[in-house]
């Protein structure tokens, strides 16, 4: 069974704005699936349709074999969802937030209390449990929210931009929490992100989105391979020997290679033995960024700078 099956979904807001325009994909159980794209690409809209918050204008969504909208109640019982905006109650303590979530998913009395305490320990929030969430850092809030989404041991965890607005250290901590959870529970994780590095680090499978459509789906390795190969770049003095497919301009020799790290020593040796002096050597790997440019046509940061800045600031204000 697939964790998620999506067929030809379309979402039109206010009868005029087409946010999602004919998207289909499957998510296998037990993987981390990433929707990668700039803001406004329709990632959040797709997520909201999966978690039963939005209706589809057209198309079908099913989660673990339960079809929307008929079986929404079952779907809600087996998914955990962390929205993009801060969803923990800022006026309550971390412990109270978890307790309310636990109760909403049917845990009662002692059992609910013990479960919350266990989650607080796991997430490293035990010390901060009785502090008002308003005083938490962005990373702590995200971890608490993930904890709140885990109270019912969901089969599918869905995170919308889990690290937006976080500093690099907090971001790495959140990644670690997600990975640790996934390894321990074997659940399916779906995340949206516009950070290339995040998608590359976390995801087993990535769908690159642009303006309501999916441009391409594949593993990070496949996507990068589709954007070409990496290359070894040597800055040299003199005339280099022949390499297949290599370019030599202004004293810089660029040698394409499928496995740069392995071929670098032999290339260096060959150039050195030909009598050239090597001034510097580096490897230029293909990144997801290259794959994005190839399949969408522009760089991601050119597409979303303004709206992303606005969103991040809005979030920062809310947390303050």
């Amino acid at each position: 069974m697939k964790a998620i099956e999506i067929r030809d979904i379309v979402k039109v807001y206010n009868k005029s704005v087409k946010a999602v325009d004919g998207v289909s994909f499957d998510v296998d159980e037990g993987i981390v699936f990433g929707l990668l794209g700039p803001n406004g690409a329709g990632k959040t809209t797709i997520i909201k349709m999966i978690v039963t918050l939005l209706s589809m204008t057209q198309g079908h969504v099913s989660v673990l074999g339960h079809a929307r909208p008929k079986e929404d109640y079952f779907i809600r019982n087996c998914i955990g969802y962390v929205p993009q905006d801060v969803s923990s109650d800022a006026a309550l303590t971390g412990y109270e937030n978890l307790l309310i979530s636990a109760k909403l998913y049917g845990h009662r009395g002692r059992a609910a209390k013990e479960m919350c305490e266990a989650i607080l320990h796991q997430l490293g929030l035990w010390e901060a449990r009785d502090r008002i969430v308003k005083t938490y850092s962005g990373g702590m809030i995200r971890k608490l929210e993930i904890g709140q989404a885990m109270v019912h041991d969901p089969k599918v965890l869905i995170l919308d931009e889990p690290t937006i607005g976080l500093d690099p250290v907090a971001r790495k901590q959140v990644w670690a929490s997600i990975r640790e959870l996934k390894d321990r529970t074997k659940m399916t994780v779906i995340i949206t992100t516009h950070y290339m590095e995040e998608a590359d680090q976390l995801c087993d499978m990535i769908a690159i989105m642009s303006i309501g459509k999916i441009a391409v789906i594949g593993t990070p390795t496949e996507l990068k391979a589709s954007a070409g190969t990496g290359s070894i770049v040597l800055e040299i003095k003199g005339t280099p020997p022949e390499f297949p497919g290599a370019r030599f301009e202004n004293g810089v020799l660029t040698i394409p290679s499928d496995d740069c790290a392995r071929e670098l020593p032999s290339c260096v040796a060959k150039v050195a033995s030909s009598g050239c002096e090597i001034l510097s050597a580096r490897i230029k790997e293909v990144t997801l960024e290259d794959a994005f440019v190839k399949h969408v046509g522009t760089r991601i940061d050119e597409m979303d700078q303004w709206s992303s800045v606005r969103k991040t600031r809005k979030l920062a204000r809310r947390m303050a």
């Binding site: 039963t52 918050l53 969802y81 929205p83 905006d85 801060v86 969803s87 109650d89 800022a90 909403l104």
Partner: peptide, 15 residues
Amino acid sequence: RDSGNLAKLLVAPAS
């Protein structure tokens, strides 16, 4: 609704 609080309630298994 503007914060994520309502979304959290709406995805919970409650009518």
